[in-house]
């Protein structure tokens, strides 16, 4: 079964039609990359999966967004619960002004878990999964701001992993990082897909090629082409896709 799916999804910011009839599905344990020029709707689309668009005023959505076959825009769905299943990592590393430990433990604490043993285990496990444990295990009590940008981003990934989501959304997770940190994040994504389903927005086409199994090309709010990354990058079916990935856009 598809892990994530959208069916004829339309989204409006006031009068602006930001997403037009987007239908696509993401299989479990794969990485789907969303690419397209700025303002094409890829970030907006990403944020429909954890209902982050709800925070913006005057947003209207119709169509279905399914997680494990269930509509997440159903009235019975509590967004807090949904967001525990669908973690998110942002463009700029944004650790909270707390210690490294507390950053990772935050998601558990706000969900009522304060048992020290459980927190300790979860913090270690999450930091190990995000390949940061060895670098920070001796300074968990230090402020998260003492870490480098790349480490901070991996900390943010650990923070998202701690609440044990099944899906991770990443909004240009490496665009603010140097090449070495970027490749670390990319390797991490490649590792994480064994356990998680990942949807990543990226401006960097090479990155989409390197990390994703499937690629979706968005343009002006529409899903132009969606398919295996290999296919999209070697033999795209749509001329617009070809123009975009070869850099001959416009």
């Amino acid at each position: 079964m598809n892990k994530l799916e959208s069916i004829d999804l339309n989204l409006y910011y006031s009068d602006f039609h930001a997403l037009k009839n987007v239908s696509m599905a993401v299989k479990a344990n794969t990485v789907a990359a969303l690419i397209g020029p700025s303002g094409c709707g890829k970030s907006t689309y990403l944020r429909t999966f954890n209902r982050m668009n709800d925070l913006i005023d005057n947003v209207k959505i119709d169509g279905g967004v399914l997680l494990d076959g269930k509509d997440i825009y159903d009235k019975a769905v509590v967004t807090d619960e949904l967001r525990k299943q669908v973690g998110m990592v942002f463009q700029k590393p944004n650790p909270f002004p707390k210690s490294i430990y507390e950053n990772v433990a935050y998601g558990l604490r706000v969900n009522g878990i304060n048992n020290k043993k459980i927190l300790d285990e979860s913090v270690e496990k999450s930091l190990q999964q995000s390949a940061l444990w060895d670098e920070v295990k001796d300074k968990l009590k230090k402020s998260a701001f003492e870490l480098s940008g790349g480490q901070q981003q991996r900390l943010c990934i650990a923070r998202a992993l701690a609440i044990e989501p099944t899906v991770i959304l990443m909004d240009e997770p490496a665009s603010a990082l140097d090449p070495i940190s970027t490749s670390k994040i990319e390797e991490l994504i490649y590792e994480l897909k064994k356990k998680y389903t990942i949807v990543i927005v990226t401006h960097n086409m090479q990155q989409a090629g390197r990390v994703s199994d499937y690629t979706a090309f968005f343009y002006m709010g529409s899903l132009i082409e969606y398919g295996e990354t290999k296919e999209i990058f070697t033999n795209p079916k749509n001329q617009q896709t070809q123009n975009y990935i070869t850099g001959r856009f416009g």
């Binding site: 982050m52 942002f90 700029k92």
Partner: peptide, 15 residues
């Protein structure tokens, strides 16, 4: 306070 902090927190299931 940048919005991404709010989103990060809400994204972790915080109220």
């Amino acid at each position: 306070v940048p919005d991404t902090f709010r989103q990060a927190s809400l994204g972790l299931g915080a109220s």
